[in-house]
């Protein structure tokens, strides 16, 4: 069993979970949501095992040059998917709102599919610039932050759908149908805020560990390269989100839109910068 196989099984598990979550929204049967959650858990366990296995494989292939599987685009996408599922599981343990799974697990599934189909999964040794423990700290903190924003984006989409329906109903009764499975819009708004509240300090840490690493590697903690700048843009957007909550009217729909917008900026920071713009970071080209 190689890690690539195990990642394939992971992807299948997430696919099943995703279908089951949608099935739950359609059938509205609690049992379905339970099975969907079990599929998510199985996927997560496989996923964790596969990342560990890939780590081990790198030592088998490269001897002493083995390294944590966090250093190329394939590995980072796989890790990103892992953090998203991790945050979903934590959220589920706390809030028990399984409809959220239908809007969060697809992000992980899309990531895994893209990695498996389009990205180069070779285990290459690291170029000198990447041989640093800072790489590990930097990647882990950034992606945990990104995953929080992914979850915030998922619940914000739910918020927008649900509150949109309720606005259309003249008597402002809670929306029925599938929507009745969604958490109440108050809870969705709260999860959105909480997820960003956790993501923001993590992103701050991610930016800082990146700066520390750059300083250690070439003596400049900040050089305004596109990747750095975009991470700062994302940080500004979420800082604006947090402050906007203090002023009237920036909870609810506006906050949800800002969260979706923030996640779009996050994705651009993560992928767009490498695929569209040029820069120093290593994930470019795939």
């Amino acid at each position: 069993m190689s890690s690539v196989n195990l990642f394939n099984f992971t992807t299948i598990a997430y696919f099943s979970a995703m279908i089951l979550f949608v099935g739950y929204l359609v059938t509205r049967k609690e049992g379905v949501s339970l099975v969907a959650n079990i599929a998510t858990w199985i996927g997560f366990v496989l996923h964790t095992g596969a990342i560990g296995l890939r780590w081990y494989e790198s030592y088998q292939m490269l001897g002493a040059d083995g390294r944590a599987p966090l250093s190329n685009l394939y590995e980072s996408v796989v890790f990103f998917a892992w953090t998203i599922v991790l945050i979903y599981i934590l959220l589920d343990l706390k809030y028990k709102q399984r409809a959220v799974g239908a809007f969060v697990v697809p992000f992980a599934f899309l990531g895994m599919t893209w990695a498996q189909l389009n990205l180069n999964d070779a285990i290459d040794p690291l170029v000198p610039a990447l041989q640093s423990n800072w790489l590990t700290y930097h990647v882990i903190t950034c992606f945990l932050g990104y995953a929080c924003f992914a979850v915030a984006c998922g619940v914000s989409i739910m918020y927008l759908i649900k509150s949109g329906k309720e606005q259309n109903n003249a008597e402002s009764t809670p929306a029925g149908g599938v929507m009745s499975l969604f958490p109440s819009i108050r809870v969705l708004d709260d999860i959105n805020y909480k997820a960003i509240m956790i993501g923001f300090p993590l992103l701050s840490l991610g930016i800082i560990t990146g700066a520390a690493w750059a300083n250690y590697a070439w003596g400049t903690y900040w050089s305004w390269d596109p990747k750095e700048t975009w991470s700062l843009i994302v940080w500004f957007v979420y800082a604006a989100f947090l402050h906007a909550r203090f002023t009237r009217g920036w909870v609810g729909r506006k906050a949800a839109w800002l969260s979706v917008f923030g996640f779009a900026a996050t994705i651009f920071c993560y992928l767009g910068v490498n695929l569209v713009l040029s820069g120093l970071h290593s994930y470019g080209g795939g």
Binding site: W224, T229, I233, F236, A240, A265, L277
Partner: peptide, 10 residues
């Protein structure tokens, strides 16, 4: 700051 910063990345 977020919007203007984009210019320098493009």
């Amino acid at each position: 700051l977020a919007l203007t910063s984009i210019i320098g990345t493009v």
